[in-house]
């Protein structure tokens, strides 16, 4: 009793209230590229970051800013980090969506046994609760030091649905995919080389719908493992693709590829205390993937300083 009383005196590291379970599930599902995936959660006064990675070559981060929550009370010092099963986090959150779109969920950390606690807020005649076991991190995750090249980063923006489609089409050659950006004529090329060859071009001038933005001062070409590239788009829920947003791809030093997606976490038609109500611009979850380039490919660029 005394221990729980003492615990009750100390506010937990985080209490936040979420009213858009669906959007949150969408955002987290986008980085769930396989079953039994572990995630690291990092809490701060700015929000929650969910980090997922694989074999030191692929990392994804979901940024859930504090503005996405109805209530965000942060009381920790430093930035608490803990590990958890991503499957259980998504499935656990998803259970709450069974109660209907008006459900508000409280997320609290830590619980009495260092769990992440989810529970309904003001649910009439009942409650739903979940406690998900967390673990202490034994390894420090690989730091993806993304450095842009030069003053103008090499990047392009393409509709998320289009990007997903292109990557899916590159499945049959499989193995490795080369991404080439060239300034003249401005064009992005995806080249698959494995069981066969397949090339998909995105010429900048062909259509204004194709490449929404394009920045490239010199030609670059890097190879990436197909399975990692596929993971960056394969799990984006269909509902998110319908929002018709763009994904931004940036190539950094050493060919590190950064892919940014935007996922809407707003409840349609519901005003939010933080956002202005026109399109709720602040209710967006940012998702970033980092993919390392393959080494020792014969046509690696020469002038990459």
């Amino acid at each position: 009793m005394s221990s729980s009383a003492a615990a009750a005196d100390d506010p937990p590291d985080l209490i936040c209230h979420l009213d858009s379970i669906h959007g949150m599930v969408d955002a987290l599902t986008s980085v769930r590229w396989k079953r039994h995936q572990d995630a690291v959660l990092e809490l701060s006064e700015h929000g929650i970051v969910v980090i997922v990675e694989e074999s030191g070559c692929l990392q994804a981060k979901v940024y859930l800013k504090r503005e996405l929550f109805l209530v965000y009370e942060y009381a920790a010092e430093g930035r608490p980090r803990f590990g958890m099963s991503l499957d259980l986090f998504v499935d656990g959150l998803n259970i709450f969506s069974a109660l209907g779109p008006a459900t508000v969920v409280e997320i609290r950390y830590p619980g009495p046994d260092m769990e992440l606690i989810l529970k309904t807020v003001d649910f009439p005649n009942g409650s739903l609760y979940a406690a998900i076991r967390t673990r202490i991190l034994d390894t420090i995750s690989w730091d993806y030091n993304f450095e842009p090249t030069g003053n103008v980063p090499i990047s392009f923006t393409v509709k998320s649905a289009l990007l997903k489609e292109a990557i899916e089409d590159l499945e049959w050659p499989g193995s490795s995919i080369q991404i080439v950006l060239q300034p003249d004529p401005p064009c992005v090329t995806f080249k698959g080389d494995g069981h066969g060859e397949l090339q998909i071009d995105f010429p900048y001038y062909a259509s204004t719908d194709l490449l929404i933005a394009f920045q490239c001062s010199r030609q670059v070409a890097y190879w990436y493992k197909y399975k990692f590239l596929r993971a960056t788009t394969s799990n984006i829920p269909a509902g998110v693709l319908k929002d018709n947003r763009g994904s931004k791809l940036t190539i950094g030093r050493g060919g590190m590829l950064k892919i940014q997606h935007l996922v809407s976490v707003g409840r349609p038609g519901v005003p939010h205390p933080y956002g202005d109500n026109v399109g709720q611009p602040s209710r967006i979850a940012y998702i970033e993937f980092y993919v390392k380039a393959e080494e020792e490919q014969e046509d690696a660029p020469i002038n990459d300083s």
Partner: peptide, 13 residues
């Protein structure tokens, strides 16, 4: 289970 506990209660039925 060893990793998660979920409960749902309906009251005043």
């Amino acid at each position: 289970t060893s990793l998660i506990t979920v409960g749902s209660e309906f009251r005043e039925l």
